[in-house]
Simulated scan of single mutants.
Amino acid sequence: MPNLAWLRAFEAYGRTGGIRRAAALIGIDHSAVSRHLKALENLVGVNLIDASAPGGLTEAGLHYYHTVSDALSAIEAETTRLRKARRDRLTLWCVPGLAVRWMLPRLRGFTDTFPDIALELRPSDAPPDPRDAEVDGDVRYYRDGGAAAAMVRSNELARPSVFPVCSPGYLATLPPLASAGDLLGARLLHEESDIEWRDWLAGQGISLPGDALPGPRLWHAHLVLDECRNGRGIALTNAFLLGDDLASGRLVRVEPQAKPFNEVSLGAYFLTMRAERWSERPVALFRQWLKAAMTSDLGGDF
Protein backbone atom coordinates (compact mmCIF):
# COMPACT_ATOMS: atom_id res chain seq x y z
CA MET A 1 0.00 0.00 0.00
CA PRO A 2 1.52 3.37 -0.97
CA ASN A 3 2.37 5.82 1.78
CA LEU A 4 -0.40 8.42 2.07
CA ALA A 5 2.14 11.26 1.94
CA TRP A 6 3.38 9.94 -1.44
CA LEU A 7 -0.17 9.82 -2.78
CA ARG A 8 -0.96 13.35 -1.56
CA ALA A 9 2.19 14.68 -3.22
CA PHE A 10 1.39 12.83 -6.45
CA GLU A 11 -2.22 14.04 -6.50
CA ALA A 12 -1.09 17.64 -5.88
CA TYR A 13 1.50 17.32 -8.67
CA GLY A 14 -1.10 15.94 -11.08
CA ARG A 15 -3.50 18.73 -10.18
CA THR A 16 -0.98 21.57 -10.57
CA GLY A 17 1.46 20.19 -13.15
CA GLY A 18 4.58 21.25 -11.24
CA ILE A 19 6.64 20.23 -8.24
CA ARG A 20 6.89 23.70 -6.68
CA ARG A 21 3.19 24.39 -7.24
CA ALA A 22 2.33 21.01 -5.68
CA ALA A 23 4.55 21.82 -2.70
CA ALA A 24 2.79 25.16 -2.21
CA LEU A 25 -0.63 23.48 -2.49
CA ILE A 26 -0.07 20.95 0.30
CA GLY A 27 2.30 23.09 2.37
CA ILE A 28 5.56 21.09 2.28
CA ASP A 29 9.01 21.68 0.83
CA HIS A 30 9.42 21.04 -2.93
CA SER A 31 12.31 18.66 -2.24
CA ALA A 32 9.94 16.53 -0.15
CA VAL A 33 7.52 16.41 -3.09
CA SER A 34 10.33 15.20 -5.36
CA ARG A 35 11.27 12.46 -2.89
CA HIS A 36 7.66 11.34 -2.53
CA LEU A 37 7.16 11.15 -6.29
CA LYS A 38 10.37 9.14 -6.75
CA ALA A 39 9.40 6.76 -3.93
CA LEU A 40 5.97 6.21 -5.50
CA GLU A 41 7.49 5.45 -8.90
CA ASN A 42 9.88 2.98 -7.31
CA LEU A 43 6.99 1.25 -5.59
CA VAL A 44 4.76 0.86 -8.65
CA GLY A 45 7.69 0.10 -10.97
CA VAL A 46 6.66 2.40 -13.84
CA ASN A 47 7.32 6.01 -14.77
CA LEU A 48 4.53 8.32 -13.67
CA ILE A 49 6.19 11.71 -14.18
CA ASP A 50 7.15 13.22 -17.54
CA ALA A 51 7.92 16.92 -17.20
CA SER A 52 7.86 17.35 -21.01
CA ALA A 53 4.34 15.91 -21.39
CA PRO A 54 1.19 18.04 -21.10
CA GLY A 55 0.27 18.10 -17.41
CA GLY A 56 3.63 16.57 -16.51
CA LEU A 57 2.38 12.96 -16.44
CA THR A 58 2.94 9.87 -18.52
CA GLU A 59 -0.06 7.98 -19.87
CA ALA A 60 0.19 5.54 -16.95
CA GLY A 61 0.66 8.46 -14.59
CA LEU A 62 -2.46 10.21 -15.88
CA HIS A 63 -4.58 7.07 -15.39
CA TYR A 64 -3.12 6.56 -11.91
CA TYR A 65 -3.70 10.22 -11.07
CA HIS A 66 -7.44 9.94 -11.74
CA THR A 67 -7.67 6.84 -9.55
CA VAL A 68 -5.74 8.43 -6.70
CA SER A 69 -7.62 11.74 -7.00
CA ASP A 70 -11.01 10.02 -6.87
CA ALA A 71 -9.94 7.97 -3.84
CA LEU A 72 -8.61 10.98 -1.91
CA SER A 73 -11.71 13.00 -2.80
CA ALA A 74 -13.91 10.22 -1.45
CA ILE A 75 -11.88 10.11 1.79
CA GLU A 76 -12.08 13.89 2.13
CA ALA A 77 -15.84 13.91 1.53
CA GLU A 78 -16.51 11.17 4.05
CA THR A 79 -14.23 12.83 6.60
CA THR A 80 -16.14 16.09 6.14
CA ARG A 81 -19.45 14.26 6.55
CA LEU A 82 -18.30 12.58 9.75
CA ARG A 83 -16.93 15.81 11.19
CA LYS A 84 -20.18 17.62 10.41
CA ALA A 85 -22.17 14.84 12.05
CA ARG A 86 -19.89 15.10 15.08
CA ARG A 87 -20.34 18.87 15.23
CA ASP A 88 -24.12 18.42 15.35
CA ARG A 89 -23.88 15.99 18.27
CA LEU A 90 -23.20 16.95 21.87
CA THR A 91 -22.17 14.29 24.41
CA LEU A 92 -22.38 15.58 27.95
CA TRP A 93 -21.57 13.95 31.30
CA CYS A 94 -23.11 15.26 34.49
CA VAL A 95 -23.02 14.52 38.20
CA PRO A 96 -26.12 12.30 38.81
CA GLY A 97 -27.95 14.43 41.37
CA LEU A 98 -27.95 17.51 39.16
CA ALA A 99 -28.73 15.46 36.04
CA VAL A 100 -31.83 13.82 37.53
CA ARG A 101 -33.20 16.52 39.82
CA TRP A 102 -32.51 19.66 37.80
CA MET A 103 -31.17 19.18 34.29
CA LEU A 104 -33.41 16.43 32.94
CA PRO A 105 -36.69 18.32 33.59
CA ARG A 106 -35.28 21.36 31.76
CA LEU A 107 -33.48 19.78 28.81
CA ARG A 108 -36.58 19.85 26.65
CA GLY A 109 -36.27 23.63 26.56
CA PHE A 110 -32.90 23.24 24.85
CA THR A 111 -33.82 20.37 22.51
CA ASP A 112 -37.07 22.08 21.42
CA THR A 113 -35.18 25.28 20.62
CA PHE A 114 -32.34 23.47 18.79
CA PRO A 115 -33.85 20.25 17.37
CA ASP A 116 -30.92 19.78 14.97
CA ILE A 117 -28.48 19.19 17.86
CA ALA A 118 -28.44 15.59 19.08
CA LEU A 119 -27.80 15.82 22.82
CA GLU A 120 -26.64 12.78 24.79
CA LEU A 121 -26.67 13.09 28.60
CA ARG A 122 -24.80 10.59 30.75
CA PRO A 123 -25.01 10.79 34.56
CA SER A 124 -21.69 9.85 36.15
CA ASP A 125 -20.24 10.10 39.63
CA ALA A 126 -16.73 10.55 38.23
CA PRO A 127 -15.65 13.07 35.58
CA PRO A 128 -14.71 11.68 32.16
CA ASP A 129 -11.19 11.14 30.92
CA PRO A 130 -10.25 14.40 29.11
CA ARG A 131 -8.51 12.29 26.46
CA ASP A 132 -11.81 10.65 25.46
CA ALA A 133 -12.74 12.27 22.14
CA GLU A 134 -16.30 10.92 22.42
CA VAL A 135 -17.02 13.18 25.41
CA ASP A 136 -17.54 16.88 24.73
CA GLY A 137 -18.17 18.20 28.21
CA ASP A 138 -18.97 17.63 31.85
CA VAL A 139 -21.12 19.46 34.42
CA ARG A 140 -19.96 18.90 37.98
CA TYR A 141 -19.88 20.47 41.44
CA TYR A 142 -16.42 21.34 42.73
CA ARG A 143 -15.80 22.39 46.29
CA ASP A 144 -13.79 25.56 46.71
CA GLY A 145 -10.15 24.68 46.33
CA GLY A 146 -10.97 21.61 44.25
CA ALA A 147 -9.79 21.08 40.68
CA ALA A 148 -12.28 21.95 37.97
CA ALA A 149 -9.74 21.36 35.22
CA ALA A 150 -10.88 17.91 34.14
CA MET A 151 -10.88 19.34 30.62
CA VAL A 152 -9.02 22.21 29.06
CA ARG A 153 -11.70 24.93 29.11
CA SER A 154 -14.08 25.55 32.00
CA ASN A 155 -16.78 28.02 32.97
CA GLU A 156 -18.35 28.59 36.38
CA LEU A 157 -22.12 28.20 36.03
CA ALA A 158 -23.56 28.82 39.50
CA ARG A 159 -22.41 29.13 43.10
CA PRO A 160 -25.41 28.08 45.18
CA SER A 161 -25.78 28.45 48.93
CA VAL A 162 -26.10 25.25 50.94
CA PHE A 163 -28.61 24.86 53.75
CA PRO A 164 -30.01 22.14 56.01
CA VAL A 165 -33.25 20.33 55.12
CA CYS A 166 -35.28 17.48 56.57
CA SER A 167 -38.72 15.94 56.29
CA PRO A 168 -41.63 17.64 58.09
CA GLY A 169 -42.00 14.53 60.24
CA TYR A 170 -38.38 14.61 61.39
CA LEU A 171 -38.56 18.36 62.03
CA ALA A 172 -41.49 17.74 64.37
CA THR A 173 -39.26 15.53 66.53
CA LEU A 174 -36.65 18.25 67.05
CA PRO A 175 -36.71 20.75 69.91
CA PRO A 176 -36.87 24.41 68.89
CA LEU A 177 -33.55 25.58 67.44
CA ALA A 178 -31.87 28.60 68.96
CA SER A 179 -28.68 28.39 66.89
CA ALA A 180 -26.82 26.21 64.43
CA GLY A 181 -25.07 24.52 67.33
CA ASP A 182 -28.36 22.87 68.29
CA LEU A 183 -28.15 20.81 65.09
CA LEU A 184 -25.30 18.83 66.63
CA GLY A 185 -27.87 16.99 68.70
CA ALA A 186 -29.73 15.83 65.57
CA ARG A 187 -28.91 12.96 63.18
CA LEU A 188 -26.72 14.60 60.54
CA LEU A 189 -26.47 12.89 57.16
CA HIS A 190 -23.12 12.95 55.31
CA GLU A 191 -21.78 12.02 51.91
CA GLU A 192 -18.25 10.57 52.05
CA SER A 193 -17.10 12.68 55.02
CA ASP A 194 -18.26 15.30 57.50
CA ILE A 195 -16.26 18.12 55.84
CA GLU A 196 -19.32 19.87 54.36
CA TRP A 197 -21.10 20.00 57.70
CA ARG A 198 -17.91 21.23 59.37
CA ASP A 199 -17.42 24.01 56.82
CA TRP A 200 -21.08 25.02 56.96
CA LEU A 201 -21.03 25.15 60.77
CA ALA A 202 -17.83 27.20 60.60
CA GLY A 203 -19.79 29.63 58.42
CA GLN A 204 -22.26 29.91 61.29
CA GLY A 205 -19.43 30.78 63.69
CA ILE A 206 -19.16 27.32 65.27
CA SER A 207 -15.73 25.71 65.58
CA LEU A 208 -15.60 21.99 66.26
CA PRO A 209 -13.01 19.64 67.77
CA GLY A 210 -11.25 17.12 65.57
CA ASP A 211 -13.57 14.25 66.45
CA ALA A 212 -15.69 13.00 63.57
CA LEU A 213 -19.28 14.23 63.57
CA PRO A 214 -21.85 11.50 64.21
CA GLY A 215 -24.21 10.32 61.51
CA PRO A 216 -24.09 7.87 58.60
CA ARG A 217 -21.77 8.28 55.57
CA LEU A 218 -23.80 7.55 52.43
CA TRP A 219 -21.26 8.72 49.79
CA HIS A 220 -23.77 9.97 47.21
CA ALA A 221 -25.91 13.12 47.41
CA HIS A 222 -28.99 11.32 46.07
CA LEU A 223 -28.73 8.67 48.81
CA VAL A 224 -28.39 11.38 51.44
CA LEU A 225 -31.52 13.12 50.15
CA ASP A 226 -33.46 9.84 49.93
CA GLU A 227 -32.61 9.15 53.58
CA CYS A 228 -33.67 12.69 54.38
CA ARG A 229 -37.03 12.34 52.59
CA ASN A 230 -37.64 9.17 54.57
CA GLY A 231 -37.41 11.13 57.81
CA ARG A 232 -34.07 9.79 58.99
CA GLY A 233 -32.04 12.93 59.53
CA ILE A 234 -30.92 16.35 58.32
CA ALA A 235 -29.02 16.87 55.07
CA LEU A 236 -27.00 19.77 53.71
CA THR A 237 -27.95 20.50 50.14
CA ASN A 238 -28.55 23.21 47.57
CA ALA A 239 -31.59 24.17 45.54
CA PHE A 240 -30.35 22.50 42.33
CA LEU A 241 -30.49 19.06 43.97
CA LEU A 242 -33.93 19.40 45.52
CA GLY A 243 -36.17 19.49 42.46
CA ASP A 244 -39.69 20.21 43.74
CA ASP A 245 -39.07 18.79 47.21
CA LEU A 246 -39.54 22.15 48.93
CA ALA A 247 -42.53 23.21 46.84
CA SER A 248 -44.26 19.86 47.38
CA GLY A 249 -43.52 19.82 51.10
CA ARG A 250 -41.56 16.57 51.05
CA LEU A 251 -38.67 18.48 52.58
CA VAL A 252 -38.49 21.72 54.55
CA ARG A 253 -35.66 24.08 55.36
CA VAL A 254 -34.38 23.83 58.90
CA GLU A 255 -34.18 27.31 60.44
CA PRO A 256 -33.67 28.66 63.97
CA GLN A 257 -36.49 30.52 65.67
CA ALA A 258 -34.69 33.86 65.82
CA LYS A 259 -32.65 35.03 62.85
CA PRO A 260 -31.97 32.86 59.73
CA PHE A 261 -28.71 30.99 59.31
CA ASN A 262 -25.85 32.74 57.54
CA GLU A 263 -25.69 32.16 53.79
CA VAL A 264 -22.80 29.76 53.08
CA SER A 265 -21.44 28.61 49.72
CA LEU A 266 -18.98 25.73 49.67
CA GLY A 267 -18.33 25.46 45.92
CA ALA A 268 -19.76 25.90 42.46
CA TYR A 269 -21.03 24.03 39.44
CA PHE A 270 -18.65 24.13 36.50
CA LEU A 271 -19.03 23.25 32.86
CA THR A 272 -15.77 21.83 31.49
CA MET A 273 -15.43 21.12 27.77
CA ARG A 274 -12.94 20.01 25.17
CA ALA A 275 -10.95 23.03 24.02
CA GLU A 276 -11.21 22.24 20.32
CA ARG A 277 -15.02 22.27 20.51
CA TRP A 278 -15.43 25.26 22.83
CA SER A 279 -16.52 27.69 20.09
CA GLU A 280 -18.41 25.27 17.86
CA ARG A 281 -22.10 26.00 17.45
CA PRO A 282 -23.64 23.14 19.52
CA VAL A 283 -21.21 23.69 22.38
CA ALA A 284 -21.55 27.47 22.37
CA LEU A 285 -25.35 27.31 22.28
CA PHE A 286 -25.47 24.78 25.11
CA ARG A 287 -23.04 26.79 27.23
CA GLN A 288 -25.17 29.91 26.84
CA TRP A 289 -28.43 28.05 27.52
CA LEU A 290 -27.08 26.25 30.60
CA LYS A 291 -25.56 29.38 32.13
CA ALA A 292 -28.78 31.35 31.59
CA ALA A 293 -30.98 28.58 33.00
CA MET A 294 -28.90 28.10 36.14
CA THR A 295 -28.55 31.84 36.73
CA SER A 296 -32.31 32.30 36.35
CA ASP A 297 -33.15 29.47 38.74
CA LEU A 298 -30.58 30.51 41.29
CA GLY A 299 -32.29 33.89 41.54
CA GLY A 300 -35.79 32.44 41.82
CA ASP A 301 -37.78 30.21 44.12
CA PHE A 302 -37.46 26.76 42.63
Rank of each mutant, 00 (worst) to 15 (best):
R21E: 15
D245Y: 02
K84R: 10
S179A: 12
Q257T: 14
G215T: 06
L98Q: 01
W93H: 15
V68Y: 05
L72C: 02
T80H: 13
T79M: 07
N262E: 14
R287Q: 13
P216Q: 05
L246A: 00
W200I: 01
L266K: 04
F270E: 01
A85M: 10
A212L: 04
P175S: 10
I19T: 13
S248C: 01
L62D: 15
Y64E: 08
R101L: 08
A51L: 12
R281H: 11
S279N: 14
H30I: 00
F286R: 02
L285M: 11
S52V: 08
A74P: 00
A148F: 14
A268S: 15
D125Y: 15
R81F: 10
M1D: 13
R131M: 11
L189S: 06
D226A: 12
G145M: 07
D244E: 13
L213Y: 01
R15A: 13
V139D: 04
R8F: 04
D50S: 09
R35M: 08
Y13T: 09
A180E: 09
G233W: 01
T111N: 01
A51T: 08
P128D: 08
T79Q: 14
R81M: 10
V135M: 13
M294D: 04
V95W: 14
E263R: 12
E191H: 01
D144M: 10
K291Y: 13
L104N: 04
V95M: 08
G56E: 04
E227T: 12
S179W: 09
D297F: 01
E11T: 11
D88S: 13
P282R: 04
V139C: 09
P115C: 00
W93A: 04
H190C: 12
P127G: 00
V162P: 03
W278P: 03
D136G: 00
N3Y: 10
F261S: 03
